[in-house]
C-alpha cells in the first residue's frame, strides 16, 4: 500500500488549488484587515484591530448589515424548516400526482438567484407588479403594499423570496429522511392503532433530527453568503433597510474602494462561516 510519490501526485492539484484559493486568500484578507488603507497609496501600516473596532462601534451600516443577516437567517430558516417538512410529508402521504408536486416543490432550486431576483422584483413592483395586480383583480385593492420599495417591508420581501428559493432543498432532505424511516417501525405503530396523523407526529417527525440539523446548517451557510438575491432586488435598500453583510462587503469594497474595510468584513464572514461549518463537519464526518 506504500506508494507515497504517486499518492502525492494525485493530491497535488487539489491541495494546491485549495491552499491558494481558499487558505492563502483568507489569510490575506485577515492580514489586510489589520492594515490601514491609504486610498490610491494602497495598504499603509499595521493598525491591529482598529478596522474591526471602527466597524463594530462607529459604522452603523455594518451593524445594520450584521443584524439584518441574523434576522434574515432566523426568519427565513424558521419558516423554511416547517414548510419543507410539510411538503415532504405531503409527498409521503401518497397524494395523487406525487411526481408532479415533487417537481413543483423542487423547481425553484433550479432557478439561478439572478433569475429569481428578476422574477421577484417584478412580482413585488408596487404599481406594475404581479402581487398587487392580483390583489386588485380580487377586489382587495386596499391590501396592496409597497413591498420592496418600503424600508419597513423590504426585509419581509426578502424573507418571502428566500423561502421560495430554498424550501425545495428542505423538502428534499426531509423527504429522504422520511423515506429512510424503517418500515417495521411504521407497521408496528399501525398495529398499535396509530392514525395517519399520529404516525407522523409521534414516530416520523421525532426521527428527523439529522435532516433538521443538516438543513439548518446549510441554510445558515447560504444566508451568510448569498449576495445576488438581495443585490438584484432591494440592493440593500431603501436606505440601508435591507443591507446584509454580503452586500455591504461588496459595496464598501468595489463601490467605495475601501479595501481594508472590505477585507475586514470579509474576514468577519470567514470567522462566521468557520464557526458554523467546523462543528457541523466534525459532527457529520466524525467517528
Amino acid at each position: 500500500m506504500k506508494k507515497p510519490i504517486q499518492i502525492t501526485l494525485f493530491l497535488i492539484p487539489a491541495i494546491l488549488l485549495v491552499l491558494i484559493f481558499i487558505y492563502s486568500f483568507a489569510g490575506w484578507s485577515g492580514w489586510a484587515s489589520t492594515m490601514s488603507w491609504e486610498g490610491l497609496g494602497g495598504f499603509g501600516h499595521f493598525t491591529g484591530l482598529k478596522n474591526y473596532i471602527e466597524l463594530f462601534t462607529q459604522d452603523s451600516v455594518f451593524r445594520k448589515g450584521l443584524l439584518n443577516t441574523l434576522l434574515l437567517s432566523v426568519a427565513f430558516i424558521g419558516i423554511t424548516i416547517p414548510l419543507g417538512l410539510i411538503n415532504a410529508i405531503l409527498l409521503d402521504m401518497g397524494i395523487k400526482g406525487k411526481k408532479l408536486f415533487r417537481l413543483i416543490f423542487l423547481i425553484p432550486l433550479s432557478f439561478s438567484f439572478v433569475v429569481s431576483a428578476a422574477m421577484w422584483a417584478w412580482m413585488f413592483a408596487p404599481k406594475t407588479g404581479t402581487i398587487n395586480s392580483l390583489l386588485r383583480v380580487l377586489n382587495l385593492g386596499f391590501f396592496t403594499q409597497p413591498w420592496l420599495t418600503s424600508s419597513s417591508q423590504s426585509m419581509l420581501g426578502l424573507i418571502i423570496i428566500y423561502v421560495w428559493q430554498f424550501s425545495g432543498f428542505a423538502t428534499l432532505v426531509y423527504f429522504a429522511g422520511i423515506s429512510g424511516v424503517k418500515q417495521e417501525i411504521i407497521e408496528a405503530a399501525k398495529v398499535d392503532g396509530a392514525s395517519q396523523f399520529q404516525k407522523y407526529l409521534r414516530i416520523i417527525i421525532p426521527l428527523q433530527k439529522i435532516p433538521t440539523f443538516t438543513i439548518l446548517f446549510l441554510l445558515l451557510m447560504y444566508s451568510l453568503r448569498v449576495f445576488d438575491l438581495v443585490w438584484l432586488t432591494t440592493g440593500g435598500g431603501p436606505g440601508y433597510s435591507s443591507e446584509i453583510l454580503a452586500t455591504y462587503m461588496w459595496r464598501i469594497t468595489f463601490n467605495r474602494n475601501l479595501f481594508a474595510d472590505g477585507a475586514s468584513i470579509g474576514f468577519v464572514m470567514f470567522i462566521m462561516s468557520a464557526l458554523i461549518a467546523v462543528p457541523f463537519v466534525v459532527k457529520m464526518r466524525g467517528k
Partner: peptide
C-alpha cells in the same frame, strides 16, 4: 462552506 466574500479581494 467558506463564504466567498472572505476571499473576494
Amino acid at each position: 462552506y467558506i463564504a466567498p466574500q472572505s476571499i473576494l479581494i
